[in-house]
Structure formats: C-alpha cells, structure tokens
Nucleic acid binder design. Structure first.
Length: 119
DNA sequence: TTGCTGACCGACG
DNA sequence: CCGTCGGCCAGCA
C-alpha cells in the first residue's frame, strides 16, 4: 500500500469491501488490520468517515453483539437501521438479527479474494 | 510534547 | 442483570 494510507484509510477500505446485506464488527476490522484490541480506533475512524470523499458504509459496522451502537451518529434517528433493512438486514431493538449468519469476516473474505487474485 | 477523546472489548463484583 | 474499570492507540488542540 502507499505510504499515504493511514490507519483510517485502511479501515475505510475494508468497510467499503463489505458487500450488501452483510455486516461486520469493529473488532474484526481491528483484528484484520493487525491492531487487535484497538477496535476503538475503528469506531473513531467511522466518526471521521464523513471527511472522506468516497462514501463509507459505516452502517454495516456494528459491535460484536450485533448492536447498532453507532446509530446515534447517523443523525440521531433510526437511519442506520433503515439503511440496513433496505439491504435485507433485519434489525430489531437496535440489534441485527442472524448476526452470525450475515457476519462478514474481513480476514477470511479478503484472504480468499487476495488468494483468488494471486492465482 | 502532553493530554485528552472515542461508534469497543473483556473482566470483575 | 447492571455498572465500572483498564487496555488499546490514532488523531487533534
């Protein structure tokens, strides 16, 4: 990667690779970036995601419990939930249903993608 | 340079 | 079940 790519840029790049109808967690992204335990940085990156020119689907990132902890940063309303439901992700009580099923693991998915591209 | 802050996580009582 | 605390570390004033 370029030297310009900062920790935040990497986070945004991973988030942009999340397919529709799939979700991931802050910890998974942090683990993928090799900074496991720094999941707070991922959340902080999402807070600054608005400064990015390209849109970042931050609504596809939830905490490890599948709870929409960041919904409050989408305007104070249930915009985050609506976005997820529009993509086929069922949400109830600020919590994603079938979280484990729709969970998108950046390590596994991106590894396979990289492996497939490498071959 | 220092000292906050934060959309997390896990442990503890 | 609930609140609290420490660790984690990139940005920013």
């Amino acid at each position: 990667m370029n030297t310009k790519d900062s920790f935040f840029q990497r986070v945004y790049q991973v988030v942009r690779h999340i397919p529709c109808g799939r979700i991931t967690s802050y910890g998974a992204i942090a683990n993928y970036l090799g900074t496991a335990g720094s999941s707070r940085m991922v959340g902080w990156a999402m807070n600054n995601s608005h400064s990015q020119l390209e849109p970042v689907p931050a609504h596809r990132v939830v905490n490890r419990n599948g709870v929409l902890t960041g919904k409050n940063h989408f305007g104070g309303s249930n915009i985050m939930q609506q976005l997820l439901e529009s993509e086929g992700v069922e949400v109830a009580d600020d919590k994603v249903l079938d979280f484990e099923v729709k969970f998108w693991n950046p390590i596994k998915e991106l590894e396979e993608r990289y492996f497939h591209d490498f071959i």
